[in-house]
């Protein structure tokens, strides 16, 4: 069972920067499952969830991009009212701050991606609540 990792890539806010990243990943045959961009004025961070992090890192390194791997918790929730609420409440009750959160729905099931300060603690707490935390392999099967 492996933890889910996001690849976070530094990018200047310039035309063509995102294209350079996506082109590199495409050439390496890496499939992007999810993408988010956080930006400040002149620079930003592009976060991607990919099917295979290793070749993604390899091609980014070779092309001279700056990047880091971030651990993220991928939680399977019911695609129905209250699904997200259950997760957020649990975290709040245990005083765990969300750094970032986003989600996607595929095939009638929802995946919530969350970044927190202490991933290990959040993992323990959510597991106790019978919430299913996905592995890298499971996320890719969605």
């Amino acid at each position: 069972m492996s933890e889910v990792k996001l690849v976070a890539i530094f990018a200047e806010n310039k035309t063509g920067q995102l294209a350079a990243i996506t082109q590199a990943l495409a050439q390496a045959g890496v499939n992007i499952r999810w993408v988010a961009i956080a930006s400040s004025e002149a620079f930003g961070v592009v976060k991607v969830l990919v099917n295979e992090p290793d070749p993604a890192c390899e091609v980014l390194r070779a092309k001279g991009f700056m990047f880091s791997l971030l651990e993220v918790l991928a939680i399977a929730v019911e695609d129905q009212p209250g699904g997200l609420d259950a997760v957020v409440k649990t975290l709040a009750r245990n005083k765990i701050n969300l750094r970032n959160a986003s989600g996607f729905v595929a095939h009638g099931r929802a995946v919530l991606l969350i970044e927190v300060e202490s991933a290990a603690k959040a993992r323990r707490i959510l597991a106790k609540k019978q919430l299913h935390i996905l592995t890298q392999e499971e996320v890719m099967e969605f």
Partner: peptide, 15 residues
């Protein structure tokens, strides 16, 4: 230029 090792992957850190 940022130090290669210092990039934490979060835009808030950079700000």
């Amino acid at each position: 230029e940022l130090a290669g090792a210092g990039f934490g992957g979060q835009v808030e850190k950079l700000v």
